[in-house]
C-alpha cells in the first residue's frame, strides 16, 4: 500500500531534478502526472500482489495460513522450503528442466534463426505461403498430436528420452519463434547488408558479421519466450517422459499440488522454488532483453 503513495511523489521529484536533459535524448515528452503513476502503481500491485501473498503462504505454518491467509507471516518458516524441496523432489526436477530447456532453446534459436533469415531476407519462392503455413501450424490444438506423436516417438526410440521431448518442444515452439524473429529482422536496416554485399562479402559472412549481431536482441527474446514455454509445459512432459528420474520440474510440481500433499504451505514453497530460477534469469537479463528489443528497431548497432 505504501508504494502507491511513494512512487508518484518520487516521480515528481525526479521531474524537477532532471527535466530537460532526459527528454531530449530519450523517449517522447514526459507529461505523466500523479494520475498516471497511480494507475501504473495499481497495476504493479495487481501483477505482483498475488505472488507476494503466495510467498507469504510459503512462510507460514498450516494453522497460521488457515487463520490468517492474507497477512504477513508471524514467524517465518523457512523450513517449509527445505521440506518442499525434499518432498517434491525439486532438485532432480530442476536439473532435468535445465537440460530440457537448454536444449530446446539452443535448437529453437538455430532452427528459427536460419528460417527467419531466409524468410526475411532471401527471396524464396513460396515464402509467403510458407509463412501462412507457419501461422496455421502455430494455431493447431497440440493435444491432438499426443497419440500420433507417441506412436512415432516410441517407434523411433525417442520416447522416454529428454532429447525426444526437446525435439517435440522445438517442433511446437519454432513456428512462432520464426515468425517473431522474422518480423524482428524485417525492422533491421538492410543498408549495412547491401553495403557489405556490394563490397563483395558472401552470404555467410553477411549472416555472421552483420545480421547475427543485429539480431541478437531478437534471438534473446525468442530464447526467453521459448525457454519459458518449455520450462512451464507439463502435458507433453508427463506423456513423453516415463522415467520419473528424467521428469522436469513442471511435472514434479503439477503432481505435487495434485493431492500428493494437503499442505498448501508446502505447495506454495514448491511453487516459489519452481518460479525462482526463471525469475532470477529474467531479472538478470531483462535489461538486455527488453532494451535490445527496443533499441534495435532504430537500427543502432
Amino acid at each position: 500500500m505504501s508504494l502507491s503513495v511513494k512512487l508518484p511523489l518520487d516521480g515528481n521529484v525526479g521531474e524537477v531534478n532532471r527535466s530537460n536533459a532526459a527528454s531530449r535524448t530519450r523517449s517522447p515528452v514526459g507529461t505523466a502526472g500523479v494520475f498516471t503513476y497511480t494507475i501504473l502503481t495499481a497495476l504493479v500491485i495487481f501483477a505482483l500482489g498475488p505472488i507476494v501473498l503466495f510467498f507469504f503462504s510459503a512462510l507460514k505454518t498450516q494453522n497460521e495460513l488457515a487463520s490468517n491467509p492474507l497477512g504477513l507471516p508471524q514467524t517465518w518458516q523457512w523450513g517449509n522450503f527445505i521440506d518442499a524441496w525434499q518432498q517434491a523432489n525439486m532438485g532432480a526436477g530442476l536439473f532435468n528442466s535445465v537440460v530440457i530447456v537448454g536444449g530446446t532453446v539452443i535448437l529453437t534459436c538455430f532452427v528459427a534463426g536460419c528460417a527467419a533469415y531466409a524468410l526475411a531476407r532471401l527471396e524464396i519462392r513460396g515464402g509467403s505461403a510458407f509463412i501462412t503455413y507457419l501461422l496455421v501450424t502455430s494455431s493447431l490444438p497440440t493435444q491432438m498430436f499426443l497419440v500420433p506423436l507417441f506412436y512415432l516417438w516410441s517407434r523411433a526410440g525417442l520416447y522416454d528420452t529428454q532429447f525426444g521431448l526437446i525435439l517435440i518442444y522445438v517442433g511446437l515452439f519454432s513456428p512462432f519463434a520464426t515468425l517473431l524473429l522474422r518480423s524482428f529482422m524485417l525492422t533491421m536496416p538492410k543498408e549495412f547488408e547491401e553495403a557489405a554485399r556490394m563490397d563483395g562479402a558472401g552470404e555467410l559472412k553477411i549472416l555472421l558479421r552483420i545480421v547475427l549481431p543485429n539480431a541478437l536482441p531478437g534471438l534473446l527474446t525468442i530464447a526467453l519466450v521459448t525457454g519459458l514455454s518449455a520450462y512451464n509445459e507439463f502435458l507433453f512432459a508427463i506423456t513423453f517422459i516415463q522415467n520419473s528420474d528424467l521428469l522436469p520440474v513442471s511435472t514434479t510440481f503439477f503432481s505435487f499440488q495434485q493431492g500428493f500433499t494437503q499442505n498448501f504451505t508446502l505447495i506454495s514453497a514448491a511453487g516459489i522454488i519452481m518460479i525462482a530460477p526463471m525469475l532470477i534469469l529474467f531479472l538478470a537479463l531483462q535489461r538486455r532483453f527488453i532494451d535490445g528489443l527496443s533499441s534495435s528497431g532504430l537500427g543502432g548497432a
Binding site: F150, I238, Q258
Partner: peptide, 16 residues
C-alpha cells in the same frame, strides 16, 4: 499421478 495414469497407459498402449 492418479488423474493421469489412465491416459498415459492408454496412450502408451495405443502406440504398442
Amino acid at each position: 499421478s492418479s488423474d493421469t495414469i489412465d491416459r498415459l497407459t492408454q496412450t502408451a498402449l495405443a502406440a504398442g
